[in-house]
Design a protein around this nucleic acid. Structure first.
Lengths: 333, 333
DNA sequence: GTGAAAGCGCTAACAG
DNA sequence: CTGTTAGCGCTTTCAC
């Protein structure tokens, strides 16, 4: 059996309360006493038991992170942002992948509450009534990261997906592109639906026709980018530019086009979304809409710490700025 | 205050011991009683408190994972393997990035023990005496994943890095390549040193000269692949093939070469290492040595569960098979 | 098959 | 500034 606070108290000739005070940095301890205790801790190799602590204090200093898939670059970056801030505030991360399946999401949420996490960061797909109900029923704060709920009532950190995509389309239009293909990410996810709406509305704003053929529903994989471009190239009215809802699909589009003998950007201009590290790891390099994943993670964790400390938070729905980076895959006319 | 086992006991008119039995699936409960308890649990919305449980049972059903950087594709894949098996065995994952800094690694290790994790999976850099000492001092099992300790005493899951790289070189040599560049990953990590040794020994086996100029010390980033090829192309004796210690660097090599006007594989053959998803996301597609990251994660977690259950494990040092996949970046002569 | 009681290791009033 | 005393919510003997 390992050494407890009690053993330390004994060795230092003080009460366990005093030991508790020193390991918790409570100032109400005489320096000499503190030193005695520190020595005893050192000699005994005492290591506080966080579980016992958690039970007694009802705080575990750990937060749950529910994420679609940690092996996906995009989410991994986000996770790192969360983790770094968590570490900074002395929290540990309990991490689980949900594969964006609603029942898994809900199930994980419950399991994390059982573990008595102090708070939860949720990165998911569609936020349903059930999600909201579960979140509200929980005693601990929940913040959504890169996940939008239509009700806009939950604390969350996002960019403005609608405007971001609209801006990208406007960039193309102002460069005289008129036939613009769109590779959508799964639309059951609200953020993706917003991107598509931005695309649609930008066209409308410029009196450009909406063409169903120019919209391909992808699944965020490289493979579906490949398929998208294959689809586009079979059209009579081929697009001169393609906007992909994610960088990975954009890479698929570029390579698919190149495989078909096209030159990027001369024959086809391509724009991605996210600015993952992938964007620079392709030739030509990918122009893309920057979604600051790391920052979204970091800011959402920071927001959670505020909620945890009961600090006043004036704006619970944070919208981070987006911008476009032009690289080799676009040419300005 | 939330509902406890005591409330359930009250409602069901049984003792808390009985409630404990049913939530733990203990068979020694009369079906009728069990049902009564289940109903009470349902009605009260009781959710067992894992922290209290952990304190009483000295088992937290959570395992710590110390990983260099979760935002790195390679490690993220590994993490997913760990996570999937952990979930299967009802464990939760406490995940922390160490950035391969020894003091962080040791510190995290300690913090995880404080949290009373049942076991730890360690993915790290060099295993020093201090690491070994810390691991041995811990009461809980530790397994190394994709991390080799020279002493070979710790439970671990790896591939044979030495042979894997040797095989790749042999493939090149048997295809008549004689001037083979090597982009090394940081050599303080033992697995990387083994790869380099494999490269060196393969050359020696075929009486090919070892040439310092043909070895570039990279840092596993795309950028350093770019730099490596720049270095190689300035040489009088330029390599006709380059072997990179990781896929990401290999991508850098390919693009750097292409940027300089070379054709891959005609002018330069490139082979990577790992077979991350990146390998297919480049043109030409990347030939590479397969290191099954997901499997390494999964197998190491499986091994940990065995150690946790006290099952007999005949072979604590697992070596998974490797192989080479040839794609577009190599041409066979 | 079920209950009573003693902790698990620590925090948090409350005294003094 | 320090000690005493209850718990935190659950598991786990040990009886019955």
């Amino acid at each position: 059996m390992s050494v407890t606070i009690y053993d330390v108290a004994n060795k230092a000739n003080v009460s366990m309360a005093t030991v508790s005070r020193v390991i918790n940095g409570n100032t109400n301890v005489k320096p000499a006493t503190r030193q005695k205790v520190m020595n005893a801790i050192e000699e005994l190799g005492f290591r506080p038991n966080a579980v016992a602590r958690g039970l007694a204090s009802r705080k575990t200093t750990s937060v749950g992170v529910i994420i679609p898939d940690i092996s996906n670059m995009f989410f991994a970056e986000l996770a790192r942002g969360i983790e770094d801030i968590a570490t900074m505030y002395k929290y540990h991360i309990i991490l689980s992948s949900s594969d964006q399946q609603k029942n898994k999401e809900l199930d994980l949420f419950d399991k994390m509450l059982e573990k008595q996490v102090d708070g939860i960061i949720f990165i998911g797909s569609a936020i349903t009534e059930e999600h909201i109900e579960a979140f509200n029923r929980s005693e601990v704060p929940v913040v959504l990261a890169a996940t939008v709920d239509e009700s806009s009532k939950l604390p969350s950190v996002n960019i403005d997906y609608y405007s971001a995509m609209k801006d990208a389309v406007q960039f193309l239009i102002s460069n005289k592109y008129e036939s613009i293909g769109f590779v959508a990410s799964p639309l059951n996810i609200h953020a993706n639906a917003m991107k598509k709406q931005g695309y649609l509305d930008a066209l409308k704003d410029h009196q450009l026709p909406e063409n169903e053929e120019l919209i391909f529903n992808g699944d965020d994989t490289y493979q579906s980018g490949l398929e998208a471009v294959r689809h586009f190239l079979h059209l009579n009215n081929k697009p001169s530019a393609v906007l992909a809802s994610s960088d990975e699909m954009a890479l698929g589009v570029i390579h698919g086009a190149q495989d078909a003998g096209l030159n990027i950007p001369e024959d086809l201009t391509v724009i991605g979304f996210d600015n993952t590290r992938l964007a620079k790891m392709v030739r030509p390099t990918l122009s893309t809409v920057v979604q600051p994943m790391y920052d979204i993670g970091a800011v959402s964790m920071r927001l959670l710490t505020k909620l945890l400390k009961g600090e006043e938070v004036d704006q619970q729905q944070v919208t981070l700025p987006h911008r476009m980076i032009t690289r080799g895959s676009t040419s300005e006319k």
